[in-house]
Write a protein that binds this DNA or RNA. Structure first.
Lengths: 134, 134
DNA sequence: CGGAATCCCTTGGGATACTG
DNA sequence: CAGTATCCCAAGGGATTCCG
């Protein structure tokens, strides 16, 4: 990655021209964000962590998510290879979800974001208050 | 942060109960994602990096963004204290944007995501293809 | 140049009801 | 239990036009 940690994406793309990966960083970021930057994906991945959870477990651990959105989100994550779905032919049915190896690598990013969110939450709130007051 | 890097959010929240920051990690992640997980914010922040760019510069460097969305995104980022807007009273007008110190800390996350996106892009594409083929 | 305002279509996503 | 199927509203966001 960039030698200079806070180099702009523009500069980064310049350094990429020509070789694999190419200057398409912007497009790829957008694609990843479309998947994991939606309303629930990152939260589902972060909640799974290294646990194995059932559908109803996830529903309980993620306050505010609807059954519908949990279903859709899990399907997408499964399609993208971040989550493994295991259904047991029992009655009543039991379905377990866990992260793939790829999914596990993303958890670290999720934690980085969570950490940043927690650390800067109040600063942002304050900035908003000041902005709105002008 | 968690000793175990890939611990679940559930486990992390458990370890947080009681003290400042609290078990609200999920809510805070959602709030941060609502800001920076939208369609353009992260890309704007990543593009700014440590550069100072004009409105039209950003418009050119971020393929696909509309004038409207760039305006709205910059306003939000300014409100949240991630971006500083400087308007010069000239004609024709000139407006420059750069990151605040807070914004700069987020660039590192942006780069982490970019890195992950680039590294795993093809794996995800492949996983999708396999999923769709079944 | 750097927006603001309007129009209008598409998507996201909640609520609810039903099913194997 | 773990979904699927509908309905439907609200928000997102592109295209276009106008303005200081």
């Amino acid at each position: 990655m960039p030698a200079h940690a806070s180099a702009g994406l523009a500069e980064y793309e310049r350094s990429c021209e020509g070789h694999p990966g190419g200057p398409e960083a912007g497009r790829m970021i957008r694609e990843v964000l479309d998947r994991v930057g939606d309303k629930w994906s990152l939260l589902v991945v972060a909640t799974l962590g290294d646990d194995v959870l059932r559908f109803s477990d996830l529903l309980r651990h993620i306050p505010g998510i609807s059954q519908r959105m949990l279903t859709l989100t899990l399907r997408q994550l499964e399609r993208d290879g971040l989550v493994i779905r295991t259904a047991y032919a029992e009655v009543p049915p039991r379905v377990e979800y866990r992260l793939t190896a790829l999914g596990a690598t993303f958890v670290e990013i999720a934690h980085t974001i969570a950490q940043w969110a927690i650390a800067n939450h109040s600063t942002i709130e304050q900035s908003r208050a000041e902005y709105d007051a002008r």
